[in-house]
Nucleic acid binder design. Sequence first.
DNA 1: CATGAATGAGGCTTCATTCAT
DNA 2: TATGAATGAAGCCTCATTCAT
Lengths: 183, 183, 183, 183
Amino acid sequence: MRADAARNRARLLEAAEKVFAAKGVSVPIDEIAAAAGVGVGTLYRHFPTKEALFEAVVVSRLESFVHAATDAATSDEPGRVFFDFLYRFARQAALKRDLFDALLVAGIDIKSQCADLVGELEGGIEHLLERARDAGDVRADVTVKDVIGLVMGTCNAASQANLDEAACDRMIGVVCDGLRADG
Amino acid sequence: MRADAARNRARLLEAAEKVFAAKGVSVPIDEIAAAAGVGVGTLYRHFPTKEALFEAVVVSRLESFVHAATDAATSDEPGRVFFDFLYRFARQAALKRDLFDALLVAGIDIKSQCADLVGELEGGIEHLLERARDAGDVRADVTVKDVIGLVMGTCNAASQANLDEAACDRMIGVVCDGLRADG
Amino acid sequence: MRADAARNRARLLEAAEKVFAAKGVSVPIDEIAAAAGVGVGTLYRHFPTKEALFEAVVVSRLESFVHAATDAATSDEPGRVFFDFLYRFARQAALKRDLFDALLVAGIDIKSQCADLVGELEGGIEHLLERARDAGDVRADVTVKDVIGLVMGTCNAASQANLDEAACDRMIGVVCDGLRADG
Amino acid sequence: MRADAARNRARLLEAAEKVFAAKGVSVPIDEIAAAAGVGVGTLYRHFPTKEALFEAVVVSRLESFVHAATDAATSDEPGRVFFDFLYRFARQAALKRDLFDALLVAGIDIKSQCADLVGELEGGIEHLLERARDAGDVRADVTVKDVIGLVMGTCNAASQANLDEAACDRMIGVVCDGLRADG
DNA sequence: CATGAATGAGGCTTCATTCAT
DNA sequence: TATGAATGAAGCCTCATTCAT
């Protein structure tokens, strides 16, 4: 791939992330192209479909989470590491508001690549969860999906309600305390 | 109001609730009319705008919550009543998936009536929360908005992820335990 | 026809005249029914079509002009009578602004009854014109259609431009002077 | 601007002029697009609104009138030039039937550019009128608005009644004679 | 290869007319 | 019979996608 093509692709992803976040998934694709400083044609050369562009944005987000989970996998303080991960996860999700919502809500099905990554991410978190549970730091009855749902849901709610960072931390704190408790 | 008009209005609300929930707010309005078994014109006679229809659906939902909060306001077991309310709230929200998300996400501003009801509902929950807090059953640092965000967010997440009722209860359980804890 | 039916018909005609004049021919028919204080159903019982209602309105207007022309037919001052008629005609037309415009412009073809009345009116004016011409008070080269066009066109223009009565009189004065002149 | 875009814009203007003239302002916009041999989308790329398209058509017409008025401004035979202008004006207006009516009648407000041009045109004609009046060739009591109303109204009437060119000339002749007369 | 003009299906809404009450 | 609710074709406009430049 030529250097300028690569640069355009990067610009498009960045612009798409911003614009999707700011205006929702239903934003006209021309607006994204404009924000990236390229023509629609160029956008379509890199992403065959609006949906494909959206997926690519989500994928890039997921990837960073997967890396974080992998990095945290081999600590010797499983509990601390697990909860730290949740906080970091939450903060990220809170920052990039509307994107995950959009992903979950807007009726755009997650496809191929995305599904794989989601699986990987779940796997990574499950690993962290199990180690924390084995160490007695997390109650026994919750599943990965519960954990992800709790954190993501809370973040979404916080961002949708325009709550500040303090509120978001407080809410995640509640969730973490709930996870620690003996049920 | 004539009998048939009332029947059609009810059908429309019901259909809209279902269809919005199943396919998101961006569903074509004709589909709702078809689901209700009436022509588009009839829909527009009852609701002057797609947005108005959506609002009406949300309002009817909110109203039932407000009633529940009011009913629970005068118990002598504030803690139990508060958490019971949250469970009921959650179960309702989980059943009617995607609607509240949509409300919060889809860029449709809440208007007039809706805003009032939301305010009322917040007031009602705040009352329950304060009584439970005064009774020492809930930690001191959380606000109504936190509570609502936690419950709603969790429910949304659960429904989006197609989790079953058990998972949803488990998640709400985590949240409630977190709220009980001393922070 | 029952008394109340007749009253409804009259009310509808009156309302239609006002509403058409105020808002143009493209006004929704419900608005006319509402202005007349009856339901649309009643309107349709009296006039099978929006166009038919419009035609009826125009007919009633034309009839009054025809009567005026007939009344003026037998004067012994043909010139004065002719120009007086034009002034009266103009004033009427100017008052009921938008109706004739609408009639002429809006693509609604004149039908049956209307056409007959227009013919009658033209006949009446032609009679006045001929007598005035024979008396040497009007130049020889103009036709009835010219006269009607000049007066109606001027009135329409005046009303469209929101000119006041003085301006309208001035303009008709110009036209009349032009008609008097020897060409 | 790209060559094809310019060509399409021109085609659209031309088609719009014809179609508006033939069928009135209420003609569906798809019909204009079809007449121009382009898709609706193209029409909307060039003119953001039906009204904007209409305005553009009117503007192009007005411009030619303004130029004519400017060209005639510095003659040394003010009377002849003034009446010549009116004849030319009339002939143009008569050719493009229904457009100006539509403009004046159909409830489409003249906006920005249009208003400016109308002002310019009025100014131009006023200049001609004053010079002709000063030369003693036109009666003293008429205003520009009167003159414009008389000519435009007459032309509209002529075209609406499907009168031929001779009749139109005759009618304008009457108006001009009326303007010359001493009132 | 980049651009942005062109396309047209499809969305929301209006309104003349019909029909149940 | 009067009413006004129901109907649905048709209008205006948007926007994902294709294609000429």
